Deep mutational scan, measured.
Amino acid sequence: LTDEELVTMSVRELNQHLRGLSKEEIIQLKQRRRTLKNRGY
């Protein structure tokens, strides 16, 4: 997933992508998404 996709994707879509990932990967992705959102994309 690109940063842009992460930010513009709805939470529902995101959760579908996260299905099948490990807990660590999910946590990393969610942190990255929060960081991007805070940057004001």
Rank of each mutant, 00 (worst) to 15 (best):
L14M: 05
Q16H: 10
K30V: 14
T8P: 01
L29V: 13
G40W: 14
T35D: 14
R33Y: 15
R32C: 03
K30L: 15
T8R: 15
S10M: 03
V7I: 12
L1T: 02
V7Y: 08
K30N: 05
N15W: 14
L36V: 03
K23L: 11
V11N: 12
E13N: 04
E4M: 12
Y41R: 08
S22C: 05
S22V: 04
T35P: 01
Q28P: 02
E4R: 10
L1I: 10
K23Q: 10
I27Y: 12
R32V: 01
L18T: 06
E25D: 08
D3N: 04
T8W: 06
L6D: 01
R32W: 03
E24W: 11
T8N: 14
L21C: 06
L36E: 01
T8L: 09
D3G: 01
N15F: 12
T8Q: 13
Q31C: 08
L18Y: 09
G40K: 11
N38S: 09
L18D: 01
T8D: 06
E5R: 09
D3S: 02
D3P: 02
Q31L: 12
I27C: 12
T35H: 13
L18K: 02
I27H: 11
E4I: 11
R19T: 07
L1Q: 01
K30P: 00
N38M: 10
L21H: 06
E4Q: 10
K37F: 09
R32H: 03
H17L: 14
L21S: 04
E13S: 05
V11H: 11
R34E: 09
V11E: 12
R39F: 10
E24H: 10
R32N: 00
R19W: 05
N15Y: 14
V11Q: 10
R33M: 09
T2M: 03
E4P: 03
S22Q: 06
N15M: 14
N15C: 15
H17V: 11
E13Q: 11
E5F: 05
G20S: 07
I27D: 09
L14G: 00
K23E: 09
T2A: 04
K37L: 15
R33Q: 06
L36C: 03
L1Y: 04
H17F: 15
R32M: 02
R12I: 07
R32P: 00
L36W: 01
L36S: 02
V7T: 06
R39L: 15
L14S: 00
I26Y: 05
E24A: 12
N15L: 14
E13M: 07
L14E: 01
K37S: 04
E5Y: 05
G20P: 03
Y41N: 13
N15S: 09
E5C: 14
R12V: 08
L21T: 02
R19N: 08
V7K: 07
H17E: 03
R39P: 09
N38K: 14
L21Q: 04
E5G: 03
E25K: 09
G20F: 09
G20W: 07
R19C: 05
R19S: 08
K23T: 10
K30I: 15
Q28H: 11
T35K: 14
R39N: 14
E4W: 15
M9L: 07
Q16A: 13
G40D: 11
V11L: 11
Q31A: 13
Y41L: 14
R32Q: 02
L21K: 13
R34S: 07
L29W: 04
L6S: 00
T8K: 14
D3C: 05
S22D: 06
H17D: 00
